[in-house]
Design a protein around this nucleic acid. Structure first.
Length: 257
DNA sequence: ATGGTAGTCTAACTA
């Protein structure tokens, strides 16, 4: 079973790229973030025509998440306890017995800002939710745009991206560790990877051609799934396409019984 | 330190 995640930064703009990518990479599950599409505007027919079922939780202008799957997504969750939040950042579904939790983690803007506080609180509530989900779903994947680079290997310039910088701060990394302490593994690090492997490059100042990026898009897997994970990688190809998203898709493969 | 680009929507916010 192949499971992928991609922050598309507007599904309306990136739909042709998503469909092209799926033709080349016919994954079983594709989790999308930043669809920026309200539910009535979601390109449902195009995705059904591509042979995928889909569930989505969208809003106007910002955020928005979706799960495309070859098999029917079931037991959909878009809202979690103790988080009364209009921002559409969470989408959980069960596909072929695998629980998939798609997250578009809050960016946080700047360390110490109001949005940063919201990010840490959001992560706290989401971790409680994932703990509950993990207790009922031994086959669990938590994936998406985490807006956190797990450690120094995941940033192009650790001096520039340090413990006081958004996406890298100690509190953010500690929150990610707390989530992983529920028994989730960063599948990317289960395998040997090229140095300077990133999943996001700023549109500004030629980030991609200089490979000045961060690895903030993650596929975390429960013990049962990480034990059967064959491969976890980043596909940089679409980042080189014309009018790309600033994120590349990430893919993990699991050998299921 | 700042500014650089992109998307949504046409001013300003978010990333």
């Amino acid at each position: 079973m192949q499971i992928a995640s991609w922050n598309v930064n507007s599904l309306r703009v990136r739909l042709p790229q998503v469909l092209n990518w799926l033709q080349e990479n016919p994954v079983d599950v594709l989790a999308l973030q930043e669809t920026k599409a309200q539910d009535p505007e979601f390109p449902l027919d195009d995705i059904l025509d591509a042979g995928y079922r889909v569930v989505f939780s969208g809003q106007k202008t910002y955020n928005g998440v979706a799960i495309l799957a070859k098999q029917k997504p079931e037991d959909i969750v878009t809202d979690i306890p103790q988080l009364d939040d209009p921002q559409r950042r969470i989408l959980a579904a069960t596909v072929s017995g695998v629980r998939v939790i798609n997250l578009y983690v809050v960016n946080g803007s700047e360390v110490g800002s109001e949005k940063y506080t919201y990010k840490l609180d959001w992560l706290d509530k989401v971790t409680a939710f994932v703990k509950d989900e993990a207790s009922r779903h031994p086959q669990l994947v938590v994936l998406g745009d985490f807006n956190i680079a797990p450690d120094e290997r995941d940033v192009h310039d650790p001096a520039r991206w340090n413990e006081d910088t958004i996406l890298c701060s100690t509190a953010e990394r500690t929150a990610l560790k707390k989530l992983c302490a529920l028994g989730l593994k960063d599948t990317f690090r289960q395998f040997e990877q090229e140095a300077a492997s990133f999943s996001w490059w700023d549109y500004r100042s030629g980030g991609f051609p200089r490979n000045q990026g961060l690895r903030i898009d993650l596929i975390l897997a429960s013990e049962q799934l990480s034990a059967v994970c064959n491969c976890s990688r980043i596909d940089k190809t679409p980042r080189g396409w014309e009018r790309p998203s600033d994120h590349a898709p990430v893919i993990a493969e699991f050998k299921l019984g």
